[in-house]
Design a protein around this nucleic acid. Structure first.
Length: 272
DNA sequence: AGATTCGCCTGAGAGC
DNA sequence: TGCTCTCAGGCGAATC
């Protein structure tokens, strides 16, 4: 499932293919995504030039020359491919965006949890982005911020950092890995984690995400179609998906426990 | 307000 | 081989 590092990798991958390109025909084969594709989206995209390929949380944000922006979210099974238009569409290829380079952007999403939405120039803030917490690499994100925000919270610290209102990008895998590196047990109440621990955690969240982005970039060096897969970072996981396997630090068997409906992995010895 | 649950989807993998 | 069942999960909405 594409998390923030995967989305950033995809952004970097498609950027050279879309920057400065003018959009031609847009084909919507199935508008039934997480939110329905707006009926007027093809007409409003046609003829627009793409001026910037940005990212906010897990949203790709393509800035257009008329001030409109195209939001693309991959949900959990979404893909974006840069293809030659002669490549025949396959099942779940929901949206094609033709470019004046002769290539096209193809949005593919079996589970349709993703979205392709037009954000009008007239709306300064998009409803889906309004509530989002800071980017992990934003200076506003630091240990003190987590500490202050978490006071009085009874939810598990893992759920707390996975909450997009708190900070974006700490998805299930990266939350688990960050908490391991910070030696914090994911089940702890967020309100009971100390300031010093949050300073460490914020640092580890940035570290883990940065490493994953670097690895993701490696897998897509010969970019043709961003796959949104884990890439080489998968080889460096300390706890995620390693139930029963020995901790890479101390050898203790990694524990799996469901926290807030999500599988969580941690070392009972290293994480307190 | 914060915490929890629900619902949308289909593919992969396990079990039979 | 082929079927059924379970699980996975981003994230807004609804509910507690």
């Amino acid at each position: 499932m594409p998390e923030l590092p995967e989305v950033e990798t995809i952004r970097r991958g498609i950027e050279p293919h879309v920057l400065g390109r003018r959009i031609g025909r847009v084909v919507v084969r199935d508008p039934r995504l997480r939110w329905p594709v707006q009926p007027d989206l093809p007409a409003r995209l046609a003829g627009r030039r793409i001026e910037q390929a940005a990212r906010r949380a897990k949203y790709l944000v393509l800035h257009l020359d008329n001030g409109d922006r195209l939001l693309i979210h991959l949900g959990m099974s979404g893909r974006i491919w840069v293809l030659d238009p002669t490549v025949a569409p396959i099942k779940h290829d929901h949206v094609d965006i033709e470019l004046d380079s002769g290539q096209l952007l193809r949005f593919h999403d079996p589970r349709r949890f993703g979205a392709v939405l037009l954000w009008s120039a007239g709306e300064p803030h998009h409803e889906l982005l309004r509530h989002l917490g800071p980017e992990p690499f934003d200076p506003a994100f630091h240990g003190d911020y987590l500490f202050e925000l978490s006071r009085g919270r009874s939810a598990a610290v893992k759920n707390f950092v996975m909450d997009g209102n708190v900070v974006v990008g700490a998805g299930n895998i990266y939350a688990a890995e960050s908490l391991f590196r910070a030696a914090i047990r994911p089940t702890r109440a967020a309100g009971k984690v100390t300031r010093a621990e949050y300073v460490e955690l914020a640092s580890r969240i940035r570290e883990v995400l940065n490493e994953a982005i670097v690895r993701g970039g490696t897998t897509l060096r010969d970019f043709a179609g961003a796959t949104g897969e884990l890439g080489y970072f998968q080889q460096e996981l300390y706890v995620y998906g390693r139930e029963g396997e020995p901790c890479r630090r101390c050898g203790t068997g990694i524990r799996r426990k469901v926290i807030g409906q999500r599988s969580s992995f941690y070392c009972t010895r290293c994480q307190r």
